[in-house]
Nucleic acid binder design. Sequence first.
DNA 1: TCACACCTGAAAGATATTTTCGGCTCGGTG
DNA 2: CACCGAGCCGAAAATATCTTTCAGGTGTGA
Lengths: 324, 324
Amino acid sequence: MKEIFGQGSGRVSGRGSGRGSGHGSAAPRPAAGIAPPAPAALAAKVRTLVPSMTRSMQRVAEAVANDPAGCAALTVTGLAELTGTSEATVVRTARLLGYPGYRDLRLALAGLAAQQQSGRAPAITTDIAVDDPIADVVAKLAHDEQQTLADTAAGLDTVQLGAAVTALAAARRTDVYGVGASGLVAQDLTQKLLRIGLMAHAHSDPHLAVTNAVQLRAGDVAIAITHSGSTGDVIEPLRVAFEHGATTVAITGRPNGAVAQYADHVLTTSTARESELRPAAMSSRTSQLLVVDCLFVGVAQRTYETAAPALSASYEALAHRHRR
Amino acid sequence: MKEIFGQGSGRVSGRGSGRGSGHGSAAPRPAAGIAPPAPAALAAKVRTLVPSMTRSMQRVAEAVANDPAGCAALTVTGLAELTGTSEATVVRTARLLGYPGYRDLRLALAGLAAQQQSGRAPAITTDIAVDDPIADVVAKLAHDEQQTLADTAAGLDTVQLGAAVTALAAARRTDVYGVGASGLVAQDLTQKLLRIGLMAHAHSDPHLAVTNAVQLRAGDVAIAITHSGSTGDVIEPLRVAFEHGATTVAITGRPNGAVAQYADHVLTTSTARESELRPAAMSSRTSQLLVVDCLFVGVAQRTYETAAPALSASYEALAHRHRR
DNA sequence: TCACACCTGAAAGATATTTTCGGCTCGGTG
DNA sequence: CACCGAGCCGAAAATATCTTTCAGGTGTGA
């Protein structure tokens, strides 16, 4: 039972200034009514109340104010030992600070520590430096990629995207061109389309890509993925496909680049700033993948009747490849 | 809806064991292995681990994730009643999330609540529906992937990451295993490492992977990438590499999966909610790529003297492949 | 259909927190 | 200078909370 602390003993006495009688310094009255314990304004409360505390309690309050995180990790016994006092004193201090007991003070302490922790934003706006600690690298990379995603989503032309989806959903066959890092994105798209029953193929060999592009005709789709918009090895097969009447799509960071002239639909990826340790390939890949995912989901929606069972089937088929 | 405080059965316990006194200053520190509990990366951890939880534990994890502040105010018994489970289950869940016990989970919860309080409002994310307009698809996908990135960054163990980076930077040779969507990530990592002058190779053919793994020895590094953590085709070569003395790294969404038993260092990727139109492969790929990028940048930092010129050189070399 | 493995919760066991209680110091007073 | 009283302080008892153990139930695979 949580008894009411009330009890007048609160007194001050302390040495010297015993302004005790003054009702003013009166207890914070925690128990009375709805006194919400301090959320994070704890440090201030400590400073306010310290003068009216007894010596032992001051030691406890001080420890708590100086190292919230550390104290939050201690039990009441541990904190008592650390401050050279007793458990009872620790509890009394917690009460004075407005909490029902040490348990709740500890919870508030943990919250305070977490806030302080998060307050220290690792300045994620800067470039990655050679001597950045590994934790900063993680934070910066994650932040940059999040930014890239936001930029891409904001800059994507949904009309063009919709048109591309429509073409894909109806295509007899789809070829995807990409070399280097974009080649992996091309493969990713291909894998996905295959999983929902479409005929898709990725080409990273420019010669084979051109050779196959010749086979395309109206109703087929060709997709070129190039960040720079000027990768000849990718533009060439797209041109061939375009001239053979296929519907052509370009996924590029330069919507005005050379690749665009042979593309019926251009999907623009974002271009984030790059640096020595963060090559452009990194953010362009993130951006391209988002576009590719959008294409995939769009097509899956349009062909839901066949796509859904196909997805389930491929999922089932994989289950057997897993060890227990 | 979590209202309804079940009401108490009162449950008078406590009789008897009046032992209390032994105030043993005994170490309150169970020293939970080498895994420091998460500070505020808890939400991410919950999402990552939920799939591998049992029903009862899922209920607890869900309650905790949905209302950190509320749960922090509850005792183990209260939370058990709220979720309709037992104290034992609550403790088990806390353990699974990486804490020594419920007490510490509660502390973390208080911290999380404090952060949410002062921080931003968590955006809600709904599933992608068949009839969502294309613009919504873009927005939802972008949001989900951003969430995945945040979760991954929050849940990544920087100590393990640092160890993996160190091993990679010093490796004579590095083999990367991945099949399916993870195979593309493996290739991405390989491409990057090659660009800074390291000897790396990606294997997606399980037979060839094992064949090559036999060649590895101490000082070499083997990396397995598998979302499920139970992909036999990837575990097998890692096991062989492990037994031949290579330093082994696992990049997986199930840090407790089968793959972990042969991994010197485990890097955990996040697991986002999947749905029919948003296969798990999508977010796992995003998560894996972030981890891979972190590895790459980390290694580039450590080997800056050779990495920087190598990066410039490969950039120069590509310039000639671009059309005007 | 049976056996097995594994989840689950009740209660016992261990810790941690709160309360009680008596000693002690300190300052005032005769 | 000795005595007295007030109230701080900590040791230990009492209580609340957390952790572990163990037996029963449930679903799964052979």
